[in-house]
């Protein structure tokens, strides 16, 4: 049996994996920064601002990630921003992920008893200092387990970028299978997609264990 096909396939999947990791990293950064900022605004005393936060979170969580991705991909060129599929993917996944992370942050902040904040304010701490020194350190413990869970969700979602033409690990697998099918009788699709599944599992399973551990360990 000829095994010569394996070398190039693994090399190509490796390049795809790097793209997957890069997209995951960038969209995690965008989603974390925007998500924590938006989630913190939910504690604002201004009802209008809270309503905007609520709307942002509800809206983005009620729409499929893939639709947001396609929308950003097709919309950016129309408003004059000619970016590649990779940038569009990062913006789309980042926006979608930020809503999930904002919800986790909001939930964590609201799980802290209001007396904590009131006591800090009564002691003369500014609203900003109350948030920074009293609410956030406590909320962080409750935020971390769902946040780690969201990381796996975003890493999974990075596979969607293959739909808009990014050569991530799934896109690379598809290209190799098409090539093998063109060249010979056997495309080895089961084995190649099996490798992709194994790679995602190897990344995400430890993360879910970490999330479980964090949940037990950081219980307030």
């Amino acid at each position: 049996m000829n095994e010569a096909w394996i070398g190039p396939v693994v090399a190509h999947l490796g390049r795809g994996l790097l793209v997957t990791l890069w997209i995951s990293l960038l969209s995690v950064v965008v989603a974390t920064v925007v998500g924590i900022a938006v989630g913190s605004l939910a504690t604002s005393p201004k009802p209008a601002l809270r309503a905007v936060v609520r709307g942002y979170v509800t809206l983005f969580r009620g729409i499929p990630s893939l639709l947001i991705l396609l929308c950003v991909f097709f919309a950016l060129p129309q408003i004059g921003l000619a970016t590649g599929p990779l940038t569009a993917s990062v913006i789309g996944l980042g926006l979608w992920g930020s809503a999930n992370i904002a919800e986790a942050a909001r939930g964590a902040l609201f799980s802290i008893s209001p007396h904590q904040g009131e006591a800090a304010r009564a002691l003369g701490m500014s609203a900003r200092a109350t948030l920074r020194d009293v609410l956030l350190p406590q909320a962080a413990r409750r935020f971390l387990p769902p946040y780690i869970g969201q990381l796996t969700v975003l890493i999974h979602a990075s596979a969607l970028t293959s739909v808009v033409g990014v050569s991530d690990i799934l896109g690379s697998a598809r290209q190799m299978i098409e090539r093998l099918a063109y060249m010979g009788p056997d495309s080895h699709a089961i084995l190649i997609y099996g490798m992709v599944l194994a790679v995602f599992f190897a990344i995400c399973y430890p993360l879910t264990l970490l999330a479980d551990y964090a949940e037990r360990r950081l219980r307030v």
């Binding site: 999974h156 699709a189 089961i190 997609y193 599944l197 995602f200 399973y205």
Partner: peptide
């Protein structure tokens, strides 16, 4: 449970639709 939760749905779909015809 772990295998299906720790891998992306999209790859599972590819496996079902594009790889299973092989067998």
């Amino acid at each position: 449970v772990n295998v299906f939760r720790c891998t992306p749905l999209l790859v599972q779909i590819f496996m079902l639709y594009f790889a299973l015809p092989e067998i």
